[in-house]
Design a binder for these strands. Structure first.
Length: 139
DNA sequence: GCCAACGTTGGC
DNA sequence: GCCAACGTTGGC
């Protein structure tokens, strides 16, 4: 996904999601045109660093069938793919709205991504949270 | 179907 | 590197 940030406006497949809950959100809840908050995790300063939008309907993640890919899943069959993805288009980079800053904003307290023990890379965002964050980022 | 052991992830 | 919190796996 770093590639996506680097190449603004280009459309990239969101490969490598290997968590069933996250997959279900992508497969069942995302629609073309939906807004995406680009959250960077597992780094020195986790936070929201950009805005994107869903750019395709769900389709099978090709990396699951590629033995050379780190995301290869030998148990997944072509006729019944286990992992689905959508394409996303990064619409703008933003400043880093860091995790500590997000935690400091009471109106964001309900966000799934802020929940204790959350390990999901992909969570739905409520419209109210979306609006507030977009406003905070001056977008 | 249950559950213990193990693995993974994310934040710090 | 550690820990909390899950998710996954495998034996039964």
């Amino acid at each position: 996904m770093d590639d996506a940030l680097a190449a603004l406006q280009s459309t990239v497949p969101w490969t490598g999601v290997r968590n069933y809950q996250a997959r279900n959100f992508m497969r069942d809840a995302m629609r073309i045109g939906d807004g995406v908050l680009f959250y960077h995790s597992s780094c020195a300063e986790p936070g929201i660093v950009g805005l994107a939008r869903v750019a395709s309907a769900p389709y099978p993640d090709p990396t699951q069938f590629d033995p050379a890919s780190p995301y290869f899943d030998p148990a997944s069959k072509q006729e019944s793919p286990r992992w689905m993805l959508v394409d996303v288009q990064v619409t703008r980079k933003t400043r880093n709205l860091t995790l500590p800053e997000m935690r400091s904003i009471p109106q964001l307290a309900g966000m799934l991504v802020l929940k204790k023990g959350n390990r999901l890379s992909i969570t739905p965002v409520e419209p109210g949270h979306w609006r507030l964050i977009v406003e905070l980022l001056g977008a």
